Simulated scan of single mutants.
Amino acid sequence: MAKMQQSYVRQEMVQDLPPPPASSGFVGWARRSLFSSISNSILTIVAALFVVWAGYHLFHFFILDAVFVAEDGSACKLKPGACWAFIWDRMDFFIYGFFPKDPYWASTDIFFVSAFMEYWRINVLFVIGLALLVPLLIPSVPGKLINALLFFIPFPILVIVLLNGGWFGLELVPTEKWGGLTVTLIIGLVGIVASLPIGIVLALGRQSKLPAIKTLCVVFIEIWRAVPLITVLFMASVMLPLFVPENMTIDKLLRALIGVALFNSAYMAEVVRGGLQALPRGQYEAASALGLNYWKSMGFIILPQALKHVIPGIVNTFIALFKDTSLVAIVGIFDLLRTVQNAAGNDLNWGAPTTSVTGYIFAAAMFWVFCFSMSRYSMFMERRLETGHKR
């Protein structure tokens, strides 16, 4: 009897069987998420048909019926697709605006001399800016202090010297000739770099115990938040010169930069204030218990934690600021969107029904690349700075 019972005892563990296909993998996910009920199944089928229909027409517009190579808009008139040849032909204008193409000392009958275009000044700034910005954004790269000092002090001076000219034999190029993606990046970077520290100071001032400082910061924040950016740009472009002496002129681009930076600093102040109020009171008491004064406690304990909590809000403000740079077109500044609109509407050589649409699609794609990159980087920093406070 004992031998018979031993024959039915398992001697080795049997591996677990895989889950049924109907409840795991893509099939299981589809049944749970897309076909869990009759209504969900109907909506899934309708959405799938719409995606197929839209994808078919977009594929024809962007690729099959598009014009990639052409000398003018005559070829684009014959096809209903995108006129990518227009984008390629006017790419210099979209990036550099009215910046002089050839140096003032060049001779057009000498190919070697005329090949050295003034565009090299902007290209050098792009290369140096990327070389300084990319290591600054990568946490594992050493030498952050030196890198930050180079990016925030000598680099802006180099930008002014190369773009404006007038020094070291460079041709003087007024800001009216700046344009395209170059101006968009300048306004976006200056607004981002300037609005964050100003916003932090305003947020700290709004929580100050000194009535004068608190009232001043509250009035500043509420006034700027209550006024549309278009009004701010009009005030900076039209009204501001009325309040300065007659013999004093302020550059139009500089006025727009100041208006954009101050406008977004008010919104940044509220984002930072939310992070300061989200911290437990114990953090402030711990800083006081360590014997730290106000500025040391803010710099070493409070602000690092507050800024970490509001990274999504800060980046969201940066993205909104970068997209709002297109509003400077209403005061006569040729940003990326204005150059696309100008080229599509005034260039008779590229007059075609799809020229404007293709230009706007190109501008939207450029804005999407920069905004999406900022969004992905903020998510990366959130994951890196995560300390287990998520619920």
Rank of each mutant, 00 (worst) to 15 (best):
L233M: 04
G143L: 08
Y8D: 10
R273S: 10
K252V: 08
I314H: 00
F116K: 05
F94K: 05
E285T: 00
P154N: 07
L233D: 10
R255A: 15
G282M: 04
F26I: 14
L336M: 09
L64F: 10
L253D: 06
I187P: 06
V51D: 08
R391T: 13
N342T: 10
G169H: 00
V357F: 12
F367T: 02
P211V: 05
Y284H: 12
K323Y: 08
S265Y: 02
A266R: 04
V357W: 13
I221H: 13
F98G: 03
V227Y: 10
F155I: 10
F370D: 06
I45M: 10
T354Q: 15
T175W: 09
W224E: 11
G199N: 06
G199I: 07
S36D: 15
T358E: 09
A30M: 15
L336C: 09
A203I: 01
E382I: 11
A115F: 12
S237M: 02
F243G: 06
G313Q: 13
V227S: 03
A266T: 04
D65H: 00
P19T: 07
L321K: 07
M239I: 15
L145I: 12
F99T: 07
P139R: 01
I95Y: 03
A148G: 13
N264Y: 15
W167L: 14
A203P: 12
A148I: 01
K323G: 14
P103R: 13
L158Y: 06
Y294G: 03
V272W: 05
L385V: 03
R376N: 07
A236D: 08
L336K: 08
L321Q: 11
W120K: 04
L337I: 11
V127Q: 02
L137K: 04
S288N: 12
M235E: 03
P211R: 02
K209M: 11
A148Y: 13
A22K: 09
M13R: 12
T184P: 07
L149Q: 10
M379A: 11
G25E: 06
W224M: 14
A66V: 05
W295C: 00
M298A: 07
Y377D: 11
K390F: 09
G282D: 13
L130Y: 10
F220Q: 11
I42G: 06
A54M: 15
Y119P: 02
W167Y: 14
L216P: 02
R281H: 09
R383F: 04
H60C: 01
I38N: 09
T44M: 01
P139E: 11
F99N: 01
G351I: 10
A22H: 12
S195P: 08
L58Q: 02
F94S: 01
A106V: 00
K3Y: 10
S195M: 15
